[in-house]
Amino acid sequence: MPAHGRKPVTLAWWLPFLAAILAVATWGCGGAAESNILIASTTSTYDSGLFDVLLPAFTADNPGYTVRVNAVGTGEALELGRRCDADVLLVHAPEAEEQFVAAGYGIERHPIMYNDFVIVGPGSDPAGIAGGQDAAAAFGEIAAAGAGFMSRGDDSGTHKKEQKIWAAAGVDPAGDWYHVTGQGMGATLRAAAEKAAYTLTDRGTFLSMRGNLPGLVILVEGDPLLFNQYGAIAVNPENCPQVNVEGAQAFISWLESDAGQQVIGDFGREQYGRSLFVPDAGSGGPR
């Protein structure tokens, strides 16, 4: 090995990294003049793809805004609102939302839309619930048959809804037929498909994943108990002076407007042949 190959201390070696540091330090510092709206929403809404059509439509009608969506769990979304790290919340937990507003963290709760849950299961339907419209009764039959059921068990909105249905059915779900995945909707649906088990899912996620879920079909739908109301809340500037309350109000107003409601109602029609979310601004929702 030649000795002249061992040159110590070359500044050139560091240059690319210094450049990189400078690049990152300045990157993203440009858009400060625009009005940024920060939305905290649930992952299931985000993952349905709704925001992919909603946001471009909003900014087309309201130039000068940039909107960013932070997809988190329902509980985390509310906590972010409490800590002022969101301008708007779009979540589906009516009781918690009302508490949030009552405690002064949010200005007002605006019902925007609802989607629905469906009970899915294997085509063979061992519990014989297919075609029913009573979710609680169907759950009761699943428990009575001891047929496999996948629960998310993650304290999500979907899980809370599931617990509500078990309560309505008067069943305390436990036993070797009741499986808890502790994971998101996608993973839980996959587990249900693998194990030929029943589960509760929002329609949007099920439809978007249907191709990857062999044998799983919708068995029960349409029960008002399965409806899932979404609300939008502007974070209260009295609690958080830093929030973009003007932007938040503009976004919520647009969601409630005919234009916004139209976009929501059309979402999913092309791909799945039906709407995934039913706009219901001003109605108060079916609860």
């Binding site: 330090a25 993203g28 920060l38 800590r83 002022c84 790290d85 929030v243």
Partner: peptide, 20 residues
Amino acid sequence: YLLLSRSGPLGSLGLLYTKQ
């Protein structure tokens, strides 16, 4: 997050949800 949160000690820097 707690440091950079708008309600945190460094919230005024507006660094939450940035690459920094």
